[in-house]
Amino acid sequence: MAVFDPTVPFRRSDALAAGVSAWGLRAFRRLHRDVYVAPEVGLDARVRALAALTTAPAGALVARHTAAELLGGVVPSSPHVHLVLPRGSRVRAAGIEARVGRPLSNARIRGVPVTTAEDTFVDLGPELGLVDLVVLGDSLVKAARTTPAALVAAAASATGAQTPVLRRAAALVRTGVDSPMETRLRLLLVLAGLPEPVVNHVEYAEDGRWLRRFDLSYPELKVAVEYDGRQHAESQRQWERDVERREGLDRDGWRLVVVLSKGVYREPATTLDRVVAALAAAGSTARVTSDEWRAHFPGY
């Protein structure tokens, strides 16, 4: 018999069998009908997923938004725990969204059975737009749960109305992306028809020493585009390092375009103008050639 562990979601019957009285159950947090956990346990994605699985039939997997979160992916938040169930079964409980689906492969993340990164990406195809899908793909690759090639292959095998968007998103996933905002900034440029910048370009000195790394850049033109999520310098030393880095870039002929949050969400057109101007100053004739970006980055 398994040892009763109240820090993991458990059924009422398991607690009673372990010697907890019906009255004693009142001290525990009730998550679902007949499902409880110790009151000091935080309700993170793992605990919520385990609680949902406790109500589900054998063979159920955590899926979609919840699986993406457990896999280290970045997705829009959802108030529900998402499950995929074996055919012929169902779950009805508040806070759980369960669907019957095709047989899926699974991974185990901290003891939780979840759909694989590839299946999770495909399953979210009908629910996420192009940009959010690429954000998800980039973050799953960063978490070492999949590769761009594996996502392309999974999307190629998918069916349904959203397949074209899913396949395009998979083709835009890249290795080495550091943050969702970096993905969004890259897609703003790409969807405007500008050349795609190189992700995570590293420069080395002549003696092989590491000099600097750029989030997004056009190395042949010595133009870098970087997202900065800080609202101000974090410390005097950080400010000094930024000044030193900027002086080094100027000395080596690099032009740096720093983009803040408002440059993606509120003023995307201004960001595109700034990047085009930097490219032109470096000798490029690249221009905005597509209005597709407006559908994904409308600004205010």
Rank of each mutant, 00 (worst) to 15 (best):
V75T: 13
A107Y: 04
H296K: 00
R26P: 02
V173H: 03
S157P: 00
G59A: 07
V91E: 04
A51G: 13
E267V: 09
V276T: 07
D252F: 04
P219H: 02
R64I: 04
R33G: 04
R274D: 12
T289R: 10
G160R: 05
A269Y: 02
R92G: 09
G101D: 14
A63W: 06
R230M: 11
D5N: 15
E240Y: 14
K262E: 14
T115F: 10
V84G: 08
G208D: 05
V198K: 04
I96V: 12
R12M: 06
E203G: 01
A60W: 05
P195E: 10
D215Q: 15
D228S: 03
R64Y: 14
D291A: 15
L104S: 14
V275K: 08
R92H: 11
L188K: 05
A38K: 00
I109A: 00
R246F: 12
R48F: 07
V20C: 03
R64E: 13
L53Y: 03
L216I: 03
V134H: 01
L260G: 15
S284L: 12
D273S: 10
D119H: 14
I96Y: 02
G73Q: 00
P79V: 06
G160V: 04
G24E: 09
G208F: 03
G42I: 03
T159H: 12
A282K: 07
H201G: 06
R167A: 11
L172D: 00
L71Y: 07
G193H: 05
T66H: 06
R11C: 02
A2G: 01
E118V: 02
R167F: 00
V199N: 06
E69S: 12
E40D: 15
D291S: 15
A58Y: 08
S284G: 12
A117T: 09
A277S: 12
G24F: 03
Y36P: 04
V258E: 09
N106V: 08
V135H: 02
L124D: 14
A60S: 15
P268N: 12
G253F: 12
A45W: 05
S261G: 14
N106P: 03
V75I: 10
V257K: 10
A22C: 02
E267R: 09
V84M: 11
P268D: 13
W23K: 02
